[in-house]
């Protein structure tokens, strides 16, 4: 149960793990940006991958900011607390994810249309001339491993905490490792003289990333516009919310039931009945009792006031 802006007890441990994971995420992403920056060369695909890795910093940063505010209680100027900062962070992360997909698609299509033949030159290292492509391949392999592992670790935490920002970051990590894999294929393709290989692979991958970004944008908009709570990572109505509506309708026949989502929490409004003082939000939660913290508030609107 949530109390005055303090994080519910069930969320404290997973949130601590998620915060630690995001610090690792930021550290690895910065190291990837540095390594990729060293071997960019003239490859447009490498430059795009580098920009994407930089954009990949946005979701973990906004997650950490949102968690920082979520832990604060209400203040005089913010009497409802900062739960909605999480919704705002989600919108920012969704825009970043959609932006990465759009950038990748634009870059690949324009490269294909212009029939650009990328030059990947050589550098002299320890007295030997080495094709820069080999270093790019090494950098790409390095850029694949951390987001693959971190993204897999984020997904169960996102589900446990009903955290759309973390979920979107997991998708961003998926986008990053897939782009890295496309870049790997692209550099090998360039080496084989197939100038179109990387752009084609990147264009295919960008479609999935744009779809994920667009879906995240729709959910974030629904959340900010007080829409019905949505299932994690989906535009479908949350089944737990549907069960709650059914339970409230059964308890207050004829009343209008409204639910909205603020960050990870659900706020319920029962309209057309007098306030019922005997409330136990935990007992009212119709789903898994371990997730009863999701119901943060139950409000009543008396008859004639709705």
């Amino acid at each position: 149960m949530k109390d005055g802006g303090v994080v519910p007890a069930q969320l404290r441990e997973p949130m601590r793990r998620a915060v630690r994971l995001e610090y690792w995420n930021i550290g690895f992403t910065i190291s990837i940006i540095a390594v990729m920056g060293l071997v960019l060369g003239n490859s447009q695909t490498m430059k795009t991958a580098w920009v994407e890795d930089t954009l990949g910093l946005i979701p973990p940063i906004v997650f950490l900011v949102a968690v920082h505010f979520e832990k604060k209680g209400p203040t005089d100027n913010y009497p409802f607390g900062f739960d909605r900062v999480h919704s705002l962070a989600f919108l920012i992360a969704a825009v970043a994810l959609a932006g990465v997909g759009a950038l990748l698609l634009w870059d690949s299509v324009s490269t294909l249309a212009a029939r650009e033949h990328a030059t990947v030159a050589s550098i002299r290292l320890f007295g030997r001339d080495i094709w820069l492509g080999w270093l790019m391949l090494g950098a790409q392999v390095y850029s694949i491993v951390p987001p693959l592992i971190i993204g897999l670790k984020e997904m169960p935490l996102a589900r446990e905490m009903q955290d759309e920002v973390l979920f979107t970051d997991a998708k961003m990590n998926k986008a990053n490792w897939q782009t890295g894999a496309a870049g790997l294929a692209g550099v090998i393709g360039l080496g084989l003289g197939w100038w179109w290989a990387d752009s084609l692979a990147a264009a295919f991958i960008s479609v999935g990333i744009i779809a994920d970004g667009w879906r995240a944008l729709r959910i974030a908009t629904a959340e900010l516009a007080d829409g019905v709570p949505r299932e994690l990572g989906s535009t479908r109505v949350d089944p737990e919310a549907e069960l709650l509506v059914a339970k409230l309708e059964a308890r207050y026949p004829g009343a209008g039931i409204r639910l909205r989502e603020t960050g990870r929490y659900i706020h319920a409004e029962v309209r057309g009945v007098d306030p019922d003082p005997r409330q136990d939000l935990k007992a009212l939660w119709p789903g898994d009792p371990e997730r009863s913290w999701r119901l943060a508030q139950l409000a009543f609107v008396p008859p004639g006031e709705e």
């Binding site: 033949h117 030059t119 030159a121 050589s122 001339d129 360039l190 100038w195």
Partner: peptide, 18 residues
């Protein structure tokens, strides 16, 4: 100056230019 994308040829030219 070489044509873009002819990477093996470019690599040889770079080695000899250096």
């Amino acid at each position: 100056i070489a044509r873009n994308g002819e990477n093996r040829w470019i690599m040889l030219l770079e080695r000899e230019a250096r």
